[in-house]
């Protein structure tokens, strides 16, 4: 078991290196000269060739590629990601840190909503397969996968906030502000998870041990909950876990619609402002999160599922 874990962790390291290298390359591919951009942004009135050359040397842009890459990686490990191009008195790390809590809150709330809605609905869909409940739910799932998240958000905003004046429209003052954005984000993922749980449970229902349990005369409810649901939960928890980074990244559009001040809004603003250090660090952050979460939940799944555990050791 330990060997497996160590192997997986070691396997993830080249991936991380690759991701960091891609991010580093990214900022050096931008069309404008970073030294010139830095000068312009700090409002230096007259920019001459000498000043640009000086700045390039000061920023270390004349050193070989590999050296710059290593410098950058070391800086990143010290959590020093540079300075924002648009607001030179703010650091990139500071900006990301400022916006991170809001996104985490939104992603967290959406996750909770997804779990609490998809579990029971998926469960009942499987249990009452092909009933009117199942059919309506499947139709609903179908519709929601075709609806762009931002459109749903706009419609909800208009209906709930404007027409019926039930909830605030934007910003993140109180928990009331969280309801609509979280609901919109979760709608995009609910369909996947309802389907996942339903299919998982249906598959498990066909397994032999269910047949044996039925033959033994165990009550239906007990079979459903204690056996089938528990087994289905395993795969679902892993699926949910692996999609947490996806959730964090996926709030971008909803944040834009509801003016939620999180990482997504920062990312979009940075793209429009050509604030490359922020974009680069954001991509790096999400990439690393992805690898880490995948690794973590892969290991958790192997430990938790006795079948996989046996396979591995």
């Amino acid at each position: 078991m330990r060997n497996y874990i160590i192997k997986r962790v070691l396997g993830a390291i080249p991936l991380l290196i690759c991701i960091s290298f891609l991010c580093f390359v990214f900022i050096n591919l931008i069309p404008s000269d970073p030294a010139e951009v830095a000068l312009r942004v700090s409002q230096v009135p007259v920019i001459t060739e000498e000043i640009i050359a000086e700045t390039r040397a000061a920023m270390g842009l004349d050193k070989p590629y590999l050296v710059r890459y290593l410098d950058w990686v070391i800086n990143c490990l010290h959590l020093d990601f540079g300075i924002s191009y648009t607001n030179p008195d703010r650091t990139v790390g500071g900006e990301l840190l400022r916006c991170l809590p809001a996104t985490l809150v939104l992603a967290g709330a959406s996750l909770v909503l997804v779990i609490f809605l998809s579990l029971p609905i998926g469960f009942f869909c499987a249990v009452y397969k092909d009933s009117w409940f199942d059919r309506i739910t499947r139709g609903f799932i179908f519709m929601t996968t075709a609806m762009p998240a931002y459109w749903v958000g706009l419609l909800l905003m208009w209906l709930v906030s404007i027409k019926f004046d039930l909830l605030p429209t934007s910003g993140n003052g109180s928990w009331k502000h969280l309801i609509l954005p979280a609901f919109t984000v979760s709608l995009t993922y609910i369909s996947t998870y309802i389907r996942l749980i339903r299919n998982n449970m249906l598959e498990n229902m066909k397994e032999d041990y269910v047949l044996y349990a039925n033959v033994r005369g165990l009550p239906q409810k007990s079979i459903l909950v204690k056996h089938i649901l528990k087994n289905s939960l395993h795969t679902c928890i892993v699926a949910v876990g692996m999609s947490i980074p996806q959730l964090i990244a996926g709030t971008i559009v909803v944040e834009n619609v509801f003016a939620w001040p999180g990482l997504g809004t920062l990312c979009i603003t940075s793209i429009f402002n050509r604030d490359y250090p922020v974009i680069q660090t954001y991509v790096l952050l999400i990439g690393v999160l992805f690898v880490v979460f995948n690794l973590l939940f892969d290991i958790i799944q192997t430990i938790a599922d006795p079948r996989l555990k046996n396979e591995v050791s």
């Binding site: 906030s161 404007i162 004046d165 429209t169 934007s170 910003g171 003016a259």
Partner: peptide, 17 residues
């Protein structure tokens, strides 16, 4: 308050925010 979007500002005014 910082509200970058025009529509959101108008909505905020409507709602008394």
């Amino acid at each position: 308050k910082v509200i970058p979007d025009n529509q959101t500002r108008i909505l905020a005014l409507e709602k008394g925010e």
